[in-house]
Amino acid sequence: MDKFLQLKHWQVFLYLLIVPAFIPDNEIGEYISVIYGFLFIVWLLKINEELYKRLPKGVNLNIRLLQVNLTVSFLYFAVIQLFTGGYHISSEQDNYAIYGWKMWVYIPFTFYILYSYGYSLHFTAYSIHTIEKKLYGKSTEYTALILGLFFFPIGIWSIQPKINRILRTPVAE
């Protein structure tokens, strides 16, 4: 698992950008997408757990909230992908006629997933920012880290080396 956590930035970039392009657009592709999403969530959770272990005392981040948010988001993604083949809500179609009562489930969960995504960005960026400040006396600007994570496949070129450098440091007792 340590090798999986410390992938090089170009390996993570290829994994996140190139691999999904080759997932087929059929029923087998839906299963592959769910497995791919599961591996991504496990990777994200493990990195954040390792960062959390290295945080200085007194930092107010909730790892349980992150774990619950990402787990619920993944389960929602898996259910939507496996049972409905995904959904597409837009102003150009009669959404209620297509999705019916399910639309009243899709919309709130979509907002919940946006919150979950925002919290995971904050958790990772703030962890990196705080740990760098503690270890090196200086750190990357929090806003730059948030933007790098927001533009994830591209921002990983600058963020993954920081994560690798932090994960090479021993965990303080």
Rank of each mutant, 00 (worst) to 15 (best):
M103R: 09
M103Q: 13
W104C: 12
W104Y: 15
V105D: 11
V105L: 15
Y106A: 06
Y106D: 06
Y106P: 01
I107D: 09
P108H: 10
F109D: 03
F109P: 00
T110P: 01
T110N: 13
T110K: 11
T110D: 14
Y112S: 07
Y112H: 12
Y112N: 08
Y112I: 10
I113M: 12
I113L: 13
I113Y: 09
I113H: 09
L114D: 10
L114Y: 12
Y115W: 14
S116T: 08
S116G: 14
S116F: 04
Y117D: 02
Y117G: 02
Y117H: 13
Y117A: 09
Y117T: 11
G118E: 05
G118N: 07
Y119W: 10
S120Q: 08
S120E: 03
L121Q: 06
L121P: 00
L121E: 00
H122A: 12
H122K: 14
F123S: 03
T124C: 12
A125V: 00
A125E: 02
Y126M: 15
Y126H: 14
Y126F: 15
Y126A: 11
Y126R: 13
S127N: 06
I128R: 00
I128K: 05
T130H: 05
T130Q: 09
T130G: 04
I131V: 15
E132A: 11
K133D: 14
K134L: 13
L135C: 08
L135M: 14
K138L: 13
K138I: 14
T140N: 08
T140Q: 02
T140M: 07
E141L: 11
E141P: 07
T143Q: 13
T143M: 13
A144R: 06
L145I: 06
L145H: 01
L145P: 05
L145E: 00
I146W: 05
L147V: 10
L147C: 08
L147W: 03
G148W: 04
G148V: 01
L149M: 10
L149C: 08
F150P: 00
F150K: 01
F150H: 04
F151R: 06
F152A: 05
F152Q: 03
P153A: 06
P153N: 02
P153E: 02
I154Q: 01
I154K: 05
I154F: 05
I154R: 04
I154N: 07
I154T: 06
G155D: 01
G155V: 00
G155C: 02
G155Q: 00
